[in-house]
Design a protein around this nucleic acid. Structure first.
Lengths: 324, 324
DNA sequence: TTGAAAGCGCTACCAT
DNA sequence: ATGGTAGCGCTTTCAA
């Protein structure tokens, strides 16, 4: 591979001059510039990004840490991040943390050793201390890790409340809730939204809430239990789409018709929700937009641009489909 | 961040000695080693991978180029690649090509400029020349780009044939096929498998094959057309799962019951197929395994280890579920 | 067993 | 306007 030296030699100038035309920085005479450009073309020269990174102390790369890219929420996010990063001249390194603290810290270290410019992270285990110790621009998606740290979240509570009210508006009389993973902030928030919506209902008791793990399997069990306790439930708000699907599966197993006997609404708006049959009514997050925003905010941060805002709460949208 | 110099200073030795203990290479006295290790711990020193890369001429990262991580086939592949790479000490840079030649070449260049050790690619547009010009270890998934280039594929034809025979074994009398994107090799192969299975059927004509684009929308239209032409069709083999889902949607639109009046079988075994309702019968590829294998083969190649094999054809597995 | 120093490819400072 | 060169942090010869 041709290096800057080869270009300089062929053009009959110094490497300094080549560097100047490469970066379009400093004075370069018209004549020299042309010679250099010609040599670059002839040698098909591409600057070595690693050498640049060593000098600049950053590598034009951003790290993306997600729990698991196979979780249907994240491909769209990853795509948005990669699209935006690529447009702005950055590569993205993909990391699957499995919500495991050790893995997460290991990735953080590796990313730092590789001089990433910044990191986008979706995590429920990361602490403010870890981030401060790292001393690299970070933006957090879906959870506020600490005050002041740039964060992109959605209206979890509001969306949950809307979902529950929607079920009521459809004439549902007894509405249960399948809560997300215990300890996860957005699960609490969504549960809070549900609670507000049903607080005044005479029938409501805590037993209308059952715990799931944000996956389909846990939700099938949870739904069976819930429906066992309260056979009169005719509407379920699940804290995410995968659990909504689980609820529908459980309903089929129990011989209940969806939506006739049981209406189900989810949360997230993953692609799956619009593809499955019957199509799922859900409170959709603007996932792509979140990834885009996270990336531009991160890049602003990396480039030390003044930030008007550091905490973004995006709107969710209730999409009515077939399960309600 | 502490550098090797700081460690050397603190330990009272030269940077050469520190480097030796870091890499466990060359002679280091017991006493020096201990001093160095102590200093490393105390400073929480982590070697700068970029500096290493500059010297070594590779960066311990591999590029993964896929058409679109949002396509449900790829998250599992990406996960497998990342898991395996991470285990072997490599990072992975994610690239979405959109099957666009220019984007693809741009990524190839960027990856090379970043000294990636190797690349895993799933592409229908990449040519043997591009790869040779690049001069970086590459393995191709899902398509043989050129003889000799390490390749991981599945038994497309065999699987397609099995799918069609399976429909017959279920008593289906008229079986249509929704073909994948024109010009894509695996689409041809799968179509070939279907053809072999129905060649002897007296009813068979080319009009039982209709073209889709490997996505749901195209398949809905294609299915409506197919069923319009041949209302007697009672079984459909779609060249991938998304198109199978499209076929099912079209059937619902037309008031046909699945599987009673129309059996549908897909291909790929994406997660979606087991989650949707009704669960989809499909010919599953061992996607995770393919990613794993691709990565280990690539790493062998990068490390110049002798390769027994360069072309791997993996078995597919017919999974019977609810749509047949 | 250890250290000095060259060099990986590039940028930016300082001269001229 | 241009060139020489130090230095980014590391590895690896070469000498001692």
């Amino acid at each position: 591979m041709a290096s800057i030296k080869d270009v300089a030699k062929m053009a009959g100038v110094s490497v300094a001059t080549v560097s100047r035309v490469l970066n379009d920085k400093g004075y370069v005479g018209q004549h020299s510039r042309e010679k250099v450009e010609k040599a670059i073309k002839e040698l098909n020269y591409k600057p070595n990004e690693i050498a640049r990174s060593l000098f600049k102390k950053h590598s034009n790369t951003i790290g993306l840490i997600v729990p698991d890219i196979m979780n249907p929420y994240f491909p769209e996010l990853a795509r948005a991040v990669e699209d935006t990063a690529s447009k702005l001249g950055y590569n993205v390194i993909l990391c699957n943390s499995d919500e495991n603290k050790e893995k997460e810290q290991a990735y953080l270290d590796v990313l730092k050793q590789n001089y990433v410019n910044g990191i986008i992270v979706s995590s429920n285990t990361l602490t403010a201390e870890q981030i401060e110790a790292l001393n690299i621009p970070i933006v957090s998606i879906d959870r506020e890790i600490s005050k002041g740290l740039p964060t992109i979240v959605v209206e979890n509570k509001k969306g949950a409340k809307a979902a529950t009210h929607f079920l009521k508006s459809k004439g549902r009389k007894r509405i249960g809730h399948i809560r997300g993973t215990a300890g996860v902030v957005n699960a609490e928030e969504r549960c809070g939204g549900y609670r507000e919506a049903v607080a005044e209902e005479p029938w409501f008791t805590e037993s209308y809430i059952v715990n799931g793990n944000y996956d389909m399997e846990s939700s099938i069990d949870a739904t069976r239990e819930l429906l066992g306790r309260h056979p009169d439930i005719d509407g379920i708000f699940a804290a995410n789409d995968m659990m909504a699907i689980g609820a529908i599966k459980a309903a089929y197993q129990l011989g209940k018709k969806v939506p006739e006997e049981l209406a189900v609404i989810g949360f997230d708006g993953i692609v799956l929700s619009s593809v499955m049959i019957p199509e799922l009514t859900t409170v959709a997050q603007p996932i792509y937009e979140m990834g885009e925003l996270a990336t531009t905010v991160l890049v602003n941060l990396m480039e030390q641009q003044p930030m008007e805002k550091t905490y973004y709460t995006l709107e969710v949208e209730l999409i009515e489909r077939r399960t309600t």
